[in-house]
């Protein structure tokens, strides 16, 4: 395929098509969640109060069944929002039943530390590349002799290639 076909205008056309598709798909109204899906979505965010590590959605414990029944009743009432239903459950059973930690106080660490980790990683990469570039600059521009030496080495190993 010619290089001309793969030139930047083709990329620009591709970009426009991709953005248009993303816009169509992400903004179209697929209607409200059906009650079953909404009950599932809320119950996934609530921990079973008596079993280890399971959400109300997964657990078949009677305590979880009771909470699911509360969620079902609230959803079919059609008055409260998801967050209001979750708040009501947290008030009844305590904050520890919510599977998403809050973003305040000590719990905020669980959100802040990954962000800090990402920043450390990016800054570390930035410093590493800065150092490597400085090292490369210090070596100066390769001479013709350097290129000849490398070319000789490549000639010697011709016939083998990387995978």
């Amino acid at each position: 395929m010619s290089h001309r076909f793969k030139a930047w205008p083709s990329w620009a056309a591709m970009f426009v098509v991709a953005v248009a598709l993303l816009a169509i798909g992400s903004t179209r109204d697929s209607g409200p969640l059906n009650p079953g899906d909404r009950i599932d979505a809320i119950s996934r965010r609530v921990a079973c109060p008596v079993c280890d590590g399971e959400s109300v959605f997964e657990s078949r414990n009677p305590a979880s069944e009771a909470i699911r029944a509360e969620i079902r009743a609230s959803v079919y009432d059609g008055v409260a929002t998801d967050d209001e239903i979750l708040s009501a459950i947290a008030n009844s059973y305590g904050g520890k039943v919510l599977l998403v930690p809050s973003s305040s106080g000590f719990d905020a660490l669980i959100w802040a530390l990954p962000a800090a980790g990402l920043m450390i990683g990016l800054v570390g990469l930035w410093f590493a590349f800065k150092r490597w570039r400085a090292e490369a600059a210090a070596l100066g521009v390769p001479t013709e002799g350097d290129y000849d030496l490398v070319e000789q080495a490549r000639e010697q190993h011709r016939g083998t290639s990387d995978d």
């Binding site: 965010r45 921990a47 590590g53 039943v97 599977l99 998403v100 000590f106 669980i110």
Partner: peptide, 22 residues
């Protein structure tokens, strides 16, 4: 996320859970 409930219990003496939504 796995050890956070342990940290909360050690430093704050309360229980919490971190689940799939996080």
């Amino acid at each position: 996320g796995t050890v956070f409930p342990l940290l909360v219990e050690v430093f704050q003496d309360r229980q919490t859970v971190v689940g799939a939504p996080y």
